[in-house]
């Protein structure tokens, strides 16, 4: 009796295994990515969707930072390097190649009632480093500016601080741990200023224009909105990618991937 049950079970297991195996028409192999922690969300989503389509592919993402990721692809320890900045000239001269996957626009937000609707990049850095402390200095109502930032290690914070050149120099009143918290706090305090990924900003707050350019998908794509950075895939020029890695790159630029990238809060590159 016991043997019979065992036999039936084994057959069932084999059948299921066969079904799973036979169902996949995709490629086999490894896709190793390494780099920017800011790209965690978008690469995670793409990797998940890609693995679902190609169950035989082993997809890995190592969140180390843009610099490490670029070095890793150069040394050949990963297939694709991830960088949240453009390659420097010296990196390009080493034979590396970049492909812009998406653009990350960071909106600077203030309360609905705030009369200040336009700031320059310099004014924004001055606010965040504590040089400007009152809205009246910017032509607004008298009121101490309440500077809201994100926690150390956040990708949005890293992006914002590197573009506004305020790294390690920010004087914050509140450090919050999610985009939603930042928006809720700015909404409830008319003197607050904060930043968040453009995709998550809703109409309860005002996204100020930077140097006269209002943030939108279009102004990010044509490069006129200043607070943005590219998310790039870094590869070695002239070196053929493995079939699985090439399939992943192709997938990232397919029409199918666009809504996934969109959902991760960044604008797909054209």
């Amino acid at each position: 009796m016991k043997k019979k049950i065992l036999a039936v079970l084994l057959t069932a297991v084999l059948a299921v295994g066969c079904l799973a195996g036979c169902g996949s028409a995709g490629v086999k192999g490894n896709v190793a990515t390494d780099g920017s922690t800011s790209m965690e969300k978008v690469i995670g989503a793409l990797g998940e969707a890609f693995s679902e389509k190609n169950p035989d592919v082993n997809f890995t993402y190592n969140p180390t930072g843009s610099g490490t990721g670029i070095a890793a692809v150069e040394n050949g320890t990963c297939d694709i390097g991830l960088s949240s900045r453009n390659l420097k000239d010296e990196e390009k001269s080493k034979g590396l190649e970049e492909t812009v996957l998406a653009l990350d626009g960071i909106a600077v937000i203030v309360g609905k009632d705030n009369t200040v609707k336009d700031l320059t990049l310099e004014q924004i850095s001055d606010i965040y480093t504590g040089k400007i402390t009152n809205w009246s200095e910017l032509g607004g109502k008298d009121g101490e500016i309440v500077v809201i930032g994100r926690e150390a290690g956040s990708g949005t914070r890293d992006g914002f601080e590197s573009i506004t050149k305020t790294k390690d120099a920010c004087v914050l009143r509140q450090e919050l741990t999610s985009t939603g918290d930042v928006i809720a706090t700015v909404k409830s305090n008319e003197n607050a200023i904060g930043y968040a990924s453009l995709a998550s900003v809703d109409d309860t707050v005002t996204a100020v224009s930077v140097g006269g350019v209002a943030p939108s998908k279009e102004t990010i794509l044509d490069g006129s909105y200043a607070i943005q950075r590219p998310f790039v895939l870094v590869t070695v020029a002239g070196k053929k990618l493995s079939d699985s890695a090439q399939a992943f790159v192709d997938y990232c630029f397919s029409e199918e991937a666009k809504p996934i990238i969109d959902k991760a809060g960044v604008v797909p590159a054209k």
């Binding site: 922690t37 926690e151 150390a152 290690g153 956040s154 990708g155 914050l172 009143r173 509140q174 450090e175 919050l176 741990t177």
Partner: peptide, 26 residues
């Protein structure tokens, strides 16, 4: 407020617990 200031009654402060919780994810 979660900013790592020395404690002041009306200032933004960060507790031992929140210091761990806010940064651990990244």
């Amino acid at each position: 407020g979660n900013v790592a200031n020395m404690p002041k009654l009306f200032g933004s402060v960060c507790f031992l617990t929140t210091a761990v919780a806010k940064e651990m994810s990244y």
